[in-house]
């Protein structure tokens, strides 16, 4: 009998492997170039920026000449805006996602909600910024002022409106990632829980949300890191060029004064500060190191957040794998 293996299964006689190798090689080069671009950008920023970074730079107050002093208020402002943004966006995003994945039947309305979320994700951030100014400051803020007779307290750009606008910007990210996390929890757990006499809400609260938590956190962190890098949406919303005082108010408890973020104040912001350093400087050679330093701080914060997100995603995938192995 003829031996069909002989001369057939060796690599050198096969055209499969040549084409495969070429293609795989090409793909490998392309993917490596991404890494190289990433390293180049990061390396340049690191190299130019590391020199100015010290305790004074990180915590100090900017001097009127922007080539001196620190970026403390910009770091603080970024954090303040982000925290309030999360307080606004996370509950809305998570509850919307719960509604979409657990309650809405596959109807016209669900499709409409999905389409809106997806379209919202594609709106350019500058448009969101203009919307935020028009809707939150001019409409909501002014209306509150009119009703409460507070003059010009709410109807002007401020942290709260910047946060609200950023919340609108990141809402699609949070909704989509949370919906996916919820949908990836197998039907069998819902059945097990309902079959044991748990109500729908108890099933969501005690079975589905705990399992989806790492996935949801990943989405929240990605949303946060995206919002931190945005300049366009906050430009009209109280982001200040130069503001040495921190946007704080004091909660007076007579024996002690507790500082809290003042949501009606204006603020400095890292991304916007970079923009100012790059465009408003009278002496670019002097301000360049500060620009790189500020950029480095921003990039490191974003990287740190993304790294956290990756760790959460890894944990989430492990949970899902264990679950699937047992199906």
């Amino acid at each position: 009998m003829e031996n069909r293996f002989k001369g057939n299964i060796k690599k050198e006689n096969s055209s499969n492997s040549i084409i495969d190798n070429l293609l795989i090689g090409g793909i490998r080069i392309i993917s490596f170039s991404v890494i190289i671009i990433f390293i180049l950008i990061l390396g340049k920023i690191f190299y130019e920026g590391i020199g100015v970074i010290n305790w004074n730079f990180l915590t100090g107050i900017p001097k009127s000449d922007i080539s001196k002093g620190g970026i403390g208020p910009a770091i603080f402002g970024t954090m303040a805006v982000s925290i309030i943004m999360l307080i606004l966006a996370v509950p809305v995003g998570i509850f919307s996602a719960i509604y979409i994945s657990e309650f809405a039947k596959d109807t016209f309305w669900l499709r409409l909600i999905r389409a809106s979320v997806n379209s919202l994700a594609g709106v350019p951030s500058i448009v969101i910024g203009l919307f935020g100014f028009g809707f939150f400051v001019l409409f909501i803020g002014k209306s509150i002022d009119n009703i409460l007779q507070t003059g010009m307290l709410f109807g002007q750009p401020a942290i709260i409106w910047a946060s609200a606008t950023l919340a609108v910007l990141v809402l699609p990210t949070i909704i989509v990632t949370t919906t996916e996390a919820l949908n990836s929890i197998p039907l069998t757990f819902r059945q097990a829980s309902l079959g044991l006499g748990a109500s729908k809400w108890q099933t969501i609260r005690y079975i589905i949300l705990p399992q989806a938590r790492p996935g949801i956190l990943t989405g929240v962190i990605l949303a946060l890191s995206r919002s931190i890098g945005e300049t366009a949406p906050i430009m009209f919303l109280g982001c200040a060029f130069f503001l040495p005082n921190l946007p704080l108010a004091y909660l007076d408890l007579s024996f002690v004064q507790i500082p809290i973020i003042n949501p009606a104040d204006q603020f400095m912001h890292l991304a916007y500060h970079i923009f100012i350093l790059a465009t408003q400087s009278s002496n670019p050679t002097l301000t360049a190191p500060f620009q790189y330093g500020t950029t480095l701080v921003l990039v490191l914060i974003t990287l740190l957040l993304n790294l956290t997100a990756i760790i959460f995603r890894f944990r989430f995938r492990k949970i899902i794998e264990v679950v699937n192995r047992n199906q």
Binding site: T188, A192, L194
Partner: peptide, 14 residues
Amino acid sequence: RRLVGMVFQQSNLF
């Protein structure tokens, strides 16, 4: 469902 308990065809422990 509290009165009519069920053991599913595939085990579905949490």
